[in-house]
Design a protein around this nucleic acid. Structure first.
Length: 793
DNA sequence: GACGACGACCTTTTT
DNA sequence: GGTCGTCGTC
């Protein structure tokens, strides 16, 4: 334990060490692609803990759940897992949601407020556009939502928006002069519904800190060290929260790479990282320039590209790996030929390199490009998966049930109400809903209030309808108390029963109906796993609000599909990932760079960074391709190779001797289906509680809720095994329980986590806690009495 | 209220 | 080309 800080620093290079060790003031870590950024962040947290900072004094912010989870896991292997779990570590949204729930009353909110996801926000905006009688062709909810969202990210209130000449002029120019009014109403309706949208989680945190100095002060003293990952992607709202919180201690470490800033369209402001030194003049800058991921050729090629950007922090990323092959450029006549060339090339490389399919990725600029690539891969019988499809939680039947759950917790939730008022069909249609909405608008009250008291508001409905409304509201009322006593799994089982959802689903024996039943099954078993995981970890918060808190900010980005398949995704989705072999397709002017980002140098630079991100995903091989013609929006379009190809160092390119795709092969299996994607449950397989299941959505949810990742050999080169050397052994060496005897080093089999080795035993008898390093799921500290685990010989 | 036809739409999307 | 939303019909 004496030299534990040294152990933490083990295997770091000099600049990584310096970045990890400097904790006396603000610092900026410029982390080039593949330079071991996560290693630095996690080890820095470990050092801070070893130096005596309490975990609750440290805030670590990321952009994705996945990044947060991976960091937590790695930290847990270096320090006591219990203290790792007490860190304030998570996405911006989840960390500040936690604070907002605690401080809701200061903002005049109930702490049971709902969270509107993007779909909810757009629905509400659409409804407001209709209320105002505006032309829906001109005022498209997506566009309006984008304006409101970016205003919020810039901390412009609805009033400020209305008074801002530049914004007004812009809205006038785009023929939507009444956006300010929509914004105003949108804010009111969210308030009334006791709901916050994603942007509000940051906006309201700023309001909280601005209007309540005493609250701000408490958090300022609490968070003695703040770390921010991917700082180049922060928007103004996030930047200001961090600055405010760091005001007192000035101990803030931001990590990022300005060359990988690709989210400006979501409000990210690259100036936050470029100007960090201005905000904190005393800050130290550390540059991580050694790339451990890619061959020298790949690194040099990426450098030659990014050198064309003017706005950047100077850095020289280098690799000490082998030189590697030149980067091949494929030129195709058509998009279809391009797809076949890529499929053939993948096949060829798979055979000659012995790399698994999962080490191949095909990247593209827009999702629309994926279809043709899918076709080509399918015809070559190459297994593939697509990232960025619809998430489990975005499926209609799942959203509908979640809406019920939200409504029980917060009956004011308008979007949830509208979703479930006629699900399952109970004869309350559009007409009635319109009447309710009108009454709600007129009386400035919630849909729920009208529904619960139709007579008091003279709702013009027949007695039959009135009766149905009453039944619905008493259904919700009857469920309310149960939400606070039953665990979420039991509760939801009761809910689907009482509400008639179960019955409705069982009656529907169509293909979709059966799929819906399976999704419900998956949701339920996900809930069961949620409860089980928490119990085993000694966390007894199993109620509906606890569950909602965990899933409301989940997106599907962080799925884990361990099948050996080629990865298809947009360049944006590939950020943070790495593959041995990467194909970047569709390198044509108008696509990459996108036609819509060619106007200004600033936009063009972001597109260039996007290509930089794409190329730097590759470890061993990178292949670039373009097609001269492409079928788009229903017609064939012709375009020139991307201007970015000219930015690349020609000496590193293997330019095309034209290769023709082979003729189409007959379909091997006769199956014309997409391969079952990871969230499609295999039909009729029993779900929980069998021991060996095929992978189902359940697994997926539970894997997230249980915070474990299937260890792909991916991030950063560091392995859990390595880091494990740090773990302190403590406790007894054996324990007798009603489930048998367990001792250190014992092999165990867990119902969900699989096989593992006992590393630690704390306490006596059935109440003991057992620390297990699972082969797949990583380290877990489990309460034996709840753990479904048995000893193996 | 359910279902089929037709027309408009189409960059990226960590929460 | 494919999807989604709206409108018209039963």
């Amino acid at each position: 334990m004496l030299n534990s800080v040294e152990k933490i620093l083990d295997k770091l290079n000099d600049s990584q060490k310096q970045a990890v060790l400097y904790n006396d003031g603000p610092s900026l870590v410029i982390a080039g692609a593949g330079s071991g950024k996560t290693r630095v962040l996690t080890r820095k947290v470990a050092v801070l803990l070893k130096q005596g900072l309490a975990p609750w004094n440290i805030m670590a912010l990321t952009f994705t759940n996945k990044a947060a989870r991976e960091m937590k896991e790695r930290i847990a292997t270096m320090v006591d897992p219990a203290s790792a779990s007490l860190l304030w570590m998570g996405t911006f949204h989840s960390v500040f949601l936690r604070i907002l729930r605690a401080e809701a009353s200061a903002l005049g909110y109930s702490s049971a407020f709902s969270i509107y996801d993007t779909a909810d926000s757009k629905n509400l905006i659409k409804s407001i556009i209709r209320d105002l009688g505006l032309d829906e062709k001109i005022y498209r909810e997506g566009a309006v939502h984008a304006r409101i969202s970016s205003a919020k990210n810039d901390l412009i209130s609805a009033t400020a928006y209305a008074n801002n000449a530049a914004l007004q002029e812009r809205d006038l120019f785009t023929k939507m002069p009444r956006i300010a009014e929509i914004y105003q109403r949108y804010v009111q309706r969210c308030r009334l519904a006791s709901a916050m949208d994603f942007d509000d989680l940051l906006y309201n945190t700023n309001v909280l800190f601005r209007d309540h100095p005493e609250i701000l002060k408490a958090y300022q003293s609490r968070f003695q060290f703040i770390l921010v990952d991917e700082y180049q992607d922060t928007n103004f709202s996030q930047h200001l929260i961090v600055s405010r919180l760091a005001e007192r201690h000035h101990k803030v470490c931001v990590v990022g790479d300005d060359s990988q800033s690709i989210y400006s369209f979501r409000g990210a402001n690259i100036d936050n990282i470029l100007n960090f030194k201005k905000t904190y003049p005393e800050c130290l800058m550390f540059k991580l320039e050694q790339n451990y991921r890619s061959t020298q050729t790949i690194v040099n090629l990426a450098n030659s590209l990014i050198a064309k950007n003017k706005m950047q922090i100077p850095k020289s990323v280098f690799s000490k790996r082998e030189t590697g092959n030149k980067i091949q450029v494929l030129s195709a006549f058509s998009d279809m030929e391009e797809a076949f060339m890529i499929a053939n090339k993948i096949n060829e490389m798979h055979m000659s390199l012995y790399d698994p399919w999962s080490e191949f990725a095909v990247l593209y600029r827009t999702n629309a490009q994926s279809r043709i690539l899918e076709d080509a891969l399918r015809k070559r019988s190459i297994p593939y998966r697509i990232y960025g499809g619809m998430s489990f939680y975005q499926r209609k039947e799942i959203k509908d049930i979640i809406a019920y759950l939200r409504l029980v917790i917060n009956p004011s939730d308008e979007e949830a109400f509208k979703r479930v008022i006629n699900f399952p069909a109970r004869g309350i249609g559009k007409t009635t809903l319109d009447k309710i909405q009108q009454a709600a608008n007129q009386h400035q009250t919630t849909f729920w209030e009208i529904c619960a008291n139709p007579l008091s508001y003279n709702l013009p409905v027949h007695s039959g309808t009135e009766n149905k409304l009453r039944q619905f509201s008493s259904l919700i009322e009857s469920l309310k108390p149960l939400a606070l006593t039953l665990n979420v799994y039991e509760f939801t089982k009761k809910l689907v029963q009482d509400s008639g959802i179960n019955q409705a689903l069982l009656q529907d024996n169509s293909e979709e109906g059966i799929s819906r039943q399976e999704h419900l099954e998956s949701l339920l078993s996900g809930m069961h796993d949620f409860c089980q995981n928490r119990l085993e970890e000694g966390n007894e918060q199993l109620l509906l609000p606890d569950y909602l808190a965990e899933i409301s900010l989940l997106t599907d980005q962080d799925e884990v599909d361990e099948g050996d398949k080629v990865n298809l995704m947009t360049v944006h989705a590939a950020k943070g990932l790495e593959f041995k072999n990467v194909f970047v397709s569709g390198l044509e002017d108008g696509i990459f760079p996108s036609i819509r980002n060619q106007e200004s140098e600033r936009e063009l630079e972001e597109e260039r960074r996007l290509l930089y991100v794409a190329i730097t995903r590759a470890g061993d091989h990178c292949v670039l391709s373009y097609a001269k013609s492409r079928f788009r929006n229903g017609q064939t379009e012709y375009s020139k190779p991307s201007r970015f190809l000219n930015d690349l160092d020609k000496n590193l390119l293997d330019l095309p001797t034209r290769a023709f795709a082979e003729q189409e092969l007959p379909s091997a299996s006769g199956s014309t289906h997409r391969p079952a994607s990871f969230y499609n449950p295999s039909a009729n397989k029993p779900h929980w509680p069998t021991e060996q299941r095929t992978k189902t959505p359940t697994e997926k949810i539970s894997s997230r809720q249980g915070k474990w990742t299937k260890l792909s050999a991916k991030p950063g080169g560091s392995t859990v095994g390595q880091d494990n050397a740090f773990k302190a052994e403590a406790g007894s060496s054996g324990v007798k329980t009603s489930k048998g005897e367990f001792r250190l080093g014992q092999r165990v089999l867990h119902e969900r986590f699989g096989e593992g080795l006992i590393q630690k035993i704390e306490g006596q008898g059935d109440n003991c806690k057992i620390g297990v390093e699972f082969k797949q799921a990583g380290y877990k500290l489990l309460l034996l009495k709840f753990a479904s685990m048995k000893a193996l010989n």
